[in-house]
Each structure stands twice: as C-alpha cells, then as structure tokens.
Amino acid sequence: MTSNTFRISEDLGVRRLGFGAMHLPTEPAADREASRAVARRAVELGVTLIDTAYLYGGGANEELLAEALHPYPDGLLITTKVGVARSVSSGEWRLDGRPTVLRAQVEQALRRLRVERIELLQLHRIDPDTPLADQLGALRELQTAGKVGRIGLSEVTVTELERAREIIDVASVQNRYNLLDREHEPVLAACEAAGIAFLPWRPVAAGASSARAEIAAVAAELAATPTQVSLAWLLEHSPVILPIPGTARIDHLEENLAAAHLRLTPAHRDRLNRLPEPA
C-alpha cells in the first residue's frame, strides 16, 4: 500500500502530493486574484507542501502565496529556494551562491512570506564559482540562528549530494524527474537509502508518441487521465518521492491531486516501467 504521507527529516510530516507555485501569474490584477484562488483551493484540498523560489518573479511568487494564505494553517509547509540572482547591469538571471547573497535572499524571503523561520529552505543550484562549503556554511549559520529549519538541495548529482552531506544534514533534493525522464535515478536511490525527501520538478513531461500512447492506454483502462497516471507512478515508484505538480487552473489542480487516490495494478506498473526515455 502506498503511503500518502512522508516525514521530512523524520519530524516534519507532509502529504506526499504537493503543489508547485511556479506557474502562478502575479499580474495583471485579474490573474493575480485567480492565482490566489488556486493556492487557497490547494490548501482546501489537503495540500500541505507548497514549493516556491526567489527566482519565480524575484520574490513576487512568495509575496503572492503570503497574500493568499497568511496566516498559514497549522501543518502547511511553504518551501522556498535561494541562490539565483539577477544581474543589475544585464537583467539576466545567474547562479549566485555567495554567502552575502544567500543571507540577503533568506532575509527577504522571511519578510515576503511573513514568517520568522523557513522550515525548509533549498539551494536552487550549486554555484560553481563559490566553494560549496561557503554556500552551505552560510545556510547552516542561518539554521543555527533559527531562521531556517531544514536545508535542501536542487539539481545535484550523487557526488554533490555526498559532499553536501559531509557539511550539513540534507533534508530534501529537488531534481528534474518523471516517468519519461529518469536521468536522476541514481540520485533518487541515494535519497531513498538515506531517507531524504525527493521532490521531482517537472513531474509530468511529454515523451515520444509511442510512450504517450502507452500512458494514454493505461489511463483509459483505469478511467483516469495520463497526468494522473504519471503522478500515481511517481508516488508508487519510491516512498521518498514528493511530486509538486504546478498549474494556474483549479480544474487541473483538482485533477492532479486526485492522482493520490489512483492505484496502478502490477501489470500497469510493469508496462510503465518499460517505457523508453526520449533519445
């Protein structure tokens, strides 16, 4: 039986099917109000993990979630990410893991989210131009100061994860992963062995036409949608996977969250497991 809950760092319980807020528009005003409605509906439907980041609108996404949901209900985890900054001269986004930048972005996130502590903070990417020990050391200092509860990583290799675990306790990993894109299977295996939460971004992706046809066939046999089948496969594939599908529409949100109740048969899982990844 697939469990619908997971305990991050063994002490923070969440439902395994969360919500990614990246796609929520923050303007114009009508779209912003619709986005707030989607976020509120997610919580009404039992979502307890919402993912955002400074990168999503330079903090605008964080502000939107606070407008929609603050004061936050008990048990709701809003996780955000830092470590990507916008160049003042060019306006381009780039990796920036300098301790001064990370500390500033955390302080800004605390203000925008209207909290005194970020229960799960993830490093959006490892900055190759800044020593890893400096990046994680800065986040560990914020953790010691009580401004961060748990620290996670995003888009890391097994080797990078191992190096990071020598410096900090890693609570989560957020890598690209889905039924048709399993490049990070070794990272998932490492997370499973260590009991680390694995939050796949882009949890549903289009593949080759033959693969899409097979997913559609399984969906038809289960009276479900291909998206629901893809999410159900993730939930059953590993107990540490916490998918965070995102959408700006309430009907898509409800479709996504219904996947938590879909059960694949062993035969269906076998057919899906054999699907080839795109070349």
Rank of each mutant, 00 (worst) to 15 (best):
G46I: 03
R16C: 02
R263Q: 13
V218S: 03
R271E: 06
L12D: 01
M22P: 01
R125C: 09
D11P: 00
Q135S: 09
R165Q: 15
A279G: 11
P226E: 12
R165H: 07
L76F: 07
T265C: 05
A109P: 01
A190Y: 10
E162G: 06
A37E: 15
P203Q: 07
I250P: 00
E107V: 04
P278M: 15
R182F: 03
Y72Q: 09
V115Q: 14
R86M: 08
L199D: 04
R182Y: 04
A220H: 14
T26D: 00
E27D: 08
L121H: 06
H261I: 01
A29P: 01
Y56H: 10
L120V: 13
A193K: 13
L234S: 11
H261Q: 15
V156S: 11
R202L: 11
E107G: 03
R36F: 01
S87V: 02
R114Q: 15
L153T: 10
L161I: 09
T48G: 09
N256S: 10
L69P: 06
H23D: 13
C191G: 07
H184C: 07
P131E: 14
A208D: 15
S90F: 11
E166H: 12
A213G: 10
Q122S: 14
A193C: 05
I250F: 05
R103S: 03
L257R: 05
A37Q: 15
V101Y: 10
E214K: 07
A197P: 09
T227P: 02
G57W: 00
D270Y: 01
E63T: 14
V101T: 15
R269Q: 12
L253G: 02
G146W: 09
F198H: 09
T52I: 02
C191K: 08
E67N: 00
G83C: 07
H124L: 10
V187H: 08
L17I: 11
C191M: 05
L64N: 04
E116A: 14
L231G: 09
V148Q: 03
G20I: 09
V187M: 06
E254W: 10
R271K: 10
T225P: 00
A109H: 03
V240H: 12
R40A: 08
A205M: 10
T144M: 11
N175A: 13
I244P: 06
D31P: 00
L231Q: 09
S90W: 05
P226G: 13
G149V: 04
D169P: 01
R15P: 00
E192Y: 05
P239K: 15
D129E: 14
S209Q: 15
A85M: 06
P203E: 11
L272P: 02
G246Y: 12
A39T: 04
A85C: 03
R41W: 05
P73N: 12
F19R: 04
A53R: 07
S209A: 15
A213I: 07
F198M: 04
Q108N: 13
L235P: 04
D127F: 03
A42C: 08
A66V: 07
H252G: 02
P200E: 08
G59H: 01
R249A: 14
V101I: 14
